[in-house]
Design a binder for these strands. Structure first.
Lengths: 149, 149
DNA sequence: AAAGCAAAATTGATATATCAAATATATTTG
DNA sequence: CAAATATATTTGATATATCAATTTTGCTTT
């Protein structure tokens, strides 16, 4: 098993990069707004874009766990950024709608999010980003292969 | 701000890749062993390699938070994989030592961890991995720049 | 050695991830 | 339509991440 060392450091870097990025982005968001997390923003925006989705589909769209989505949505509702219209009992029928406050927040936060991404990728050639992306895509594929060998 | 789309999908892939890899690796570990997490293994191995380190330094070595390390170490001690020799009160003096059970576990688990990494990176050219690694390194750098602009 | 300061370690609170189990709802079948 | 089954959602338990606050320990300086 060659390149063992490369793979070790690669996964270290992978973990550290995502953590540092999240920390950096979260810090910038907090500076401008109160206590909203990146994940909550992600879910909120997804619902804004496609309000017709069920939680299950939202989870898939944002690559997250179902249980996490339940909790994130609850938080967003509690914060008044999201409305659960219709039946509050039957959650499958209740439609989720971003509240005016939620809309405002998304509008205000959008440039910050974009800037975070921009700065995080500053000084990297687009072709390199593409290659890195393809590497990540391949990892995703490899980890989701049916294991039969 | 060009390439907005590329950066969006890049960060999506980044998050998904790390999550899928962890899930995949964790599943394989669980199949062979009981309930030990990747993070616990990482910390355990670090202590095995450099038992003289303090928690602070361990945290830095594995790119983790101090608070997390405190809790992970406590778990490892509770599981009998790690001994806190010497003074159990003064934690700075107490030396951490991997127990025989911990040694055994690391030995047994090592090939699984290596295989996980190998499979996750299967079919990717080493040069591409290097490029991806350099992209991640640059992101880490960008996110840790002193913000004064 | 005592006081004060710096560094290390811990704890509390909250958010998210994960898995398993339990509910609830929808759909299919008889 | 009722029962069986499938799917969606929630909940509980535990682990980790993060930040803030606190405590502990170590070091310096008298």
């Amino acid at each position: 098993m060659p390149q063992e060392k490369l793979s070790v450091t690669f996964f270290y870097f992978l973990e550290k990069a995502i953590r540092d990025y999240r920390q950096y982005a979260q810090r910038n968001i907090r500076a401008g707004f109160g206590d909203i997390t990146l994940d909550q923003i992600l879910v909120l925006r997804m619902i804004q874009d496609q309000p017709e989705l069920g939680l299950h589909q939202i989870a898939e769209a944002v690559f997250k766990d179902y249980a996490s989505i339940t909790r994130i949505v609850d938080l967003l509702v509690r914060k008044g950024l999201l409305f659960r219209l219709g039946n509050d009992r039957n959650r499958r029928e209740s439609e989720l709608t971003v509240s005016p406050a939620g809309d405002d927040l998304l509008v205000a936060i959008q440039p910050i999010v974009a800037k975070n991404r921009f700065i995080a990728l500053q000084g990297i050639h687009p072709e390199e980003i593409e290659i890195a992306k393809s590497v990540l895509a391949k990892i995703i594929e490899n980890c989701n292969e049916k294991s039969d060998g």
